[in-house]
């Protein structure tokens, strides 16, 4: 493994971590959704980076496209949910949802 690849890994892990922390500390639905998207994109970065090291096939790049497509579907569903949620709470703060607990 050359140095370039390990920097992909470090960058990917950093982005993933930022996304995860964002997801955990922010309470706004949309920002949490964006955090998840960031996590997915960090994976894309990793996949593309790894594909450089394993250039004999294009598994990683194919995987990346699949992830992009699914992330789009997820975002679409998430936005629809955000609208439905906003109608009840007049806010996108997720910790206002306390009907279901314990």
């Amino acid at each position: 493994m050359d140095i370039e690849i390990s920097s992909y890994i470090v960058l990917g892990a950093l982005l993933f971590g930022i996304g995860a922390i964002g997801f955990l500390v922010r309470r706004n639905f949309l920002i949490q959704l964006m955090s998840v998207e960031l996590m997915l994109n960090s994976v894309n970065l990793l996949l593309v980076g790894f594909n450089r090291a394993h250039a004999s096939s294009h598994d990683g790049q194919v995987f990346t496209f699949v992830v992009i497509a699914i992330a789009a579907a997820e975002a679409a569903l998430g936005l629809a949910l955000a609208i439905a949620y906003y109608r009840f709470k007049n806010s996108a703060e997720t910790d206002l949802g306390d009907l279901l607990r314990h």
Binding site: L33, V36, G78, L81, A82, A84, F88, T94, G97, L100
Partner: peptide, 8 residues
């Protein structure tokens, strides 16, 4: 609410 939590 359940869907939002489940989704996230």
């Amino acid at each position: 609410e359940g869907a939002v939590k489940y989704f996230l």
